[in-house]
């Protein structure tokens, strides 16, 4: 039997790694992938708790998250493609014209 804490720890670790990816990578595609990783980490926690409390609510929530993530990826990637088309570059460090 695996204590739920282990799953939570794994979830947290994956989440932090995803966040780290968002922070340190300059490629928007990889940033996106890191966001997906963070969502996965959250989903893992949901499912773990769903298993602990013997209910399907958590799983249904994960289902919704997956749907939203798919929508997000579709729009996000479309945006990236559009940015690339206009600037011939997708380095997010160069997308800094909105500054004070």
């Amino acid at each position: 039997m695996v204590p739920v804490d282990y799953y939570i720890a794994l979830s947290a670790l994956l989440f932090v790694l995803g966040a780290l990816g968002v922070l340190i990578r300059r490629n928007p595609l990889i940033v996106f992938m890191s966001v997906e990783l963070m969502l996965n980490a959250a989903n893992l926690a949901f499912v773990a708790f769903s298993s602990v409390f013997k209910t399907f609510n958590g799983q249904i929530f994960v289902f919704f998250v997956i749907a939203v993530a798919a929508a997000e990826v579709a729009v996000g990637l479309a945006l990236i493609v559009e940015i690339f088309k206009s600037r011939k570059n997708i380095n997010i460090d160069e997308l800094n014209s909105l500054k004070g």
């Binding site: 595609l29 298993s51 799983q59 994960v62």
Partner: peptide, 25 residues
Amino acid sequence: LGAPFIAMAQITVYAGAVMVLFLFV
């Protein structure tokens, strides 16, 4: 964890569709 449906969704949507989209882009 006893969530076969979510596992299948994960494989098909994430590992399949989403990541294929990523690679494609």
